[in-house]
Design a binder for these strands. Sequence first.
DNA 1: CGGTACTTTGAGGCCACTCAATCAGTGTGG
DNA 2: CCACACTGATTGAGTGGCCTCAAAGTACCG
Lengths: 254, 254
Amino acid sequence: MDANAANLTAQGDVFGNRWEAPFGRASTAFERVLRANGRGFRAGTTLKLEGDDNGAVYVVLSGWLAMSKSLANGARQIVDIVVPGGIIDPSSAQSDICAVQIETLSYARIAVVARAEWMRLSEADASVRRFQAMTTAAALSRMSERMLRLGKASAESRIAYALIELCLRLSAIGGGSGNTYHLPLTQQRLGEYTGLSSVHVCRTIRRLTRGGLIDMSDHMDIVIHDIDVLACIADVDLEVLRRQIIVESTATVL
Amino acid sequence: MDANAANLTAQGDVFGNRWEAPFGRASTAFERVLRANGRGFRAGTTLKLEGDDNGAVYVVLSGWLAMSKSLANGARQIVDIVVPGGIIDPSSAQSDICAVQIETLSYARIAVVARAEWMRLSEADASVRRFQAMTTAAALSRMSERMLRLGKASAESRIAYALIELCLRLSAIGGGSGNTYHLPLTQQRLGEYTGLSSVHVCRTIRRLTRGGLIDMSDHMDIVIHDIDVLACIADVDLEVLRRQIIVESTATVL
DNA sequence: CGGTACTTTGAGGCCACTCAATCAGTGTGG
DNA sequence: CCACACTGATTGAGTGGCCTCAAAGTACCG
């Protein structure tokens, strides 16, 4: 836990010290709300349980969050991972209950905005609405991609896809450098993300590293050596995927 | 194909003859747009391919749609099924391209609203925005539920969940009666929805019917005999699920 | 009545799972 | 400082659920 926090803090120059960076040019009212509601959470904190009542919208300023669901037998599926710049509206069809569990994967700074306040902000500012719409569309796109792989792809393909998705998303917000980045995930968690057992995640990653496609050291420091082959295994077109899951230039929208 | 159309037409008293029913009390501007843009599509029509440019929002007035994605090898995953009253905004992060393929599962009446017009409508009317937000939240909830099962649940559980989800959704809009309803899906399609091969869908359904839990006749006329046991297999709480995936009383919102 | 689309059942194989043991790294208390 | 606990990664062995291939059965339709 604290190891994760330390890792993230080490990236502080990217997210930590400029927590408002993803929203640098945000309209002043929006920015003010984010500042006023920003709070820090330790790695592993549960913000919301399935079925909790749901009074807030979360805007991720730094760090990583996971949205997950569980079966009665304890099996867990991470439904989406959210990185800085993301918005989480945990409401389900009846907006008063939450359909997923939300927890931090690393130390994270999050603006916890009360629903009423978020509604006011959103009603008052069309650019906030536009930004939220784009964020939601991106989330739907990447969930669709992941569903496709959960249903139909091999373990190798699922892992390759996850590595590529997170690489693209991190690059877009200035995390990592080139094809090198750190994931604040254990193999267990990566398994919950890809629908695999932790044992099989291990074997699959080993196969990829032995094939020279990637390197992995020190609890998920990833280097992608041959992203084209990896993209081929993942069955994605990098440019197409980028346009579908990456919200370009937050600053331009807001 | 035409068999499906015929089946749906047979339900005409529910959706067919009163295509505007799901939006009966919609604000006049909204209702006018739906009427002006309503079009009929035969079963099996592809409205949108992955990667197509994306100039419209679809509002389903009657019939069923599927949103799907495919791998290079042809394997397909149905990412979501949309029933009357649903809104489909096929935009991805960059709103000009479409991340999924959209096609009709039955004869369907759909309001195809140009993006610009939809934006105008949405900007002008907060209740339209609220309705779209609820629809989106419901879609996210059910996708989350399905992802959980794709990743972690047995074939039996996935099928049971799909039957229950669609039963609840149909009941909510007055389709079927009690626990009896018709699905305009082949076993192949149901497999694409649940991440199973059509062969295994067959075996699994057979097991459920032999167990007396459900009946299935005549190309997916479903009767759920023991919904409690089915819910147990699907690992859901019916009431909780309903609140998470069902948009209550469309008419009240609009 | 042949053609087509879908369902059903059998046989066999493989991928990913579970169980289990070992190893490595890190923090902790004596 | 070291023994210990604890968490996570790694590897082996064995199993089983779901897949693929294949063939036959059924319903519908021109």
